[in-house]
Amino acid sequence: MAIASIRPAAVAGQFYPADERVLRTQLGEMLTAAVPLETMVSPKAVIVPHAGYVYSGAVAATAYAGLAALRDQIERVVLLGPNHRLAVDGFALPAAQAFATPLGTVTVDRPSWLALQQRGDVVVDDRPHAYEHCLEVQLPFLQTVFDHFTLLPLLVGDASTEAVAEVLESLWGGPETLIVISSDLSHYHPYHQAQWKDRATIEHILGLHADLSHDQACGATPVNGLIQCARRHHLQAHLLDLRNSGDTAGDRNRVVGYASIAFCDPVPHASQHH
């Protein structure tokens, strides 16, 4: 594979350790310590935060620890997040055919990459991806909990909820496909105000209301699209963890909210077995 077609790690050494051994150790500790609020059964999709690991890694780990049971099942990860650095009209796929981290490279799912380009609102552009952290910080977790998987990395810019839902439906696949939405919650409110705001946001998500604003979640656009699909597929949302940077590694004057949420098939009630 030509070097030009690999997107190098942009935020290793900032958002997470650049040293492979240090990174593996930190991931192992976070995943071992993770105790989800709810047990989840074979999640189809998760929402996870994307700050530096010292801030949100423990929250993300509650979702990824629960996904470890799917190690032999997941072959493709569809990863969506908001663009933070460069405006995107619609959706941006990378031109790069692999993403590198200190743990190795992940190959882009080429059939999906080609198929998505049939849409008029999808551009192929490495520039929005070059320094974007929201997708990259998920990769070491994914590389740790899954053995072999391909990646469909998509940045979501100015797009409608319906457009995101259409894209997700086209990539939905079967039990071999996991959908990961990268999003933080509220930004830079005082601690208790953030707690109140984020709990209200979580109630919307758990109720499958696809009406989040970007004040509530920076990844509101992809989250709303996922919620719309979850309703169609009769998935249930489960809160796994909800904290903010004031709980993890920051001061409490200006905090950022983080949650991990899993979307699963409904658990059959015991009465149905009798």
Rank of each mutant, 00 (worst) to 15 (best):
R252W: 11
M1T: 05
F146C: 05
S182T: 15
A60D: 03
S271T: 09
G104K: 06
E176M: 01
Q236T: 10
Q26R: 15
V124I: 03
Q228M: 11
E29V: 00
P17G: 01
R85H: 14
Q26C: 00
L80K: 12
V256Y: 05
M30F: 12
I202S: 06
A130H: 12
S42D: 14
D241V: 02
Y64N: 00
A61L: 04
A34N: 07
C264N: 11
L185D: 00
A2V: 02
S271K: 13
Q138C: 13
G157D: 05
K44G: 10
L152M: 15
S260Y: 05
F91S: 10
W196N: 09
A10Q: 04
G207E: 12
H189L: 15
L31P: 02
P266F: 07
Y131R: 11
T39W: 07
Y16K: 01
D72Q: 14
N224S: 07
V223N: 08
H133W: 09
P49R: 10
I181H: 04
G90T: 09
F149M: 13
C264H: 01
F99W: 15
H233S: 07
H84V: 11
A217T: 02
A230T: 08
D72T: 13
H84Y: 04
A65E: 09
L171W: 02
G57K: 02
N83W: 06
V164H: 08
D19S: 01
D89L: 06
T177N: 12
H204I: 02
A9K: 01
H187R: 12
I74P: 03
H233M: 09
A10H: 10
I202K: 11
H129T: 03
E176C: 09
G28D: 03
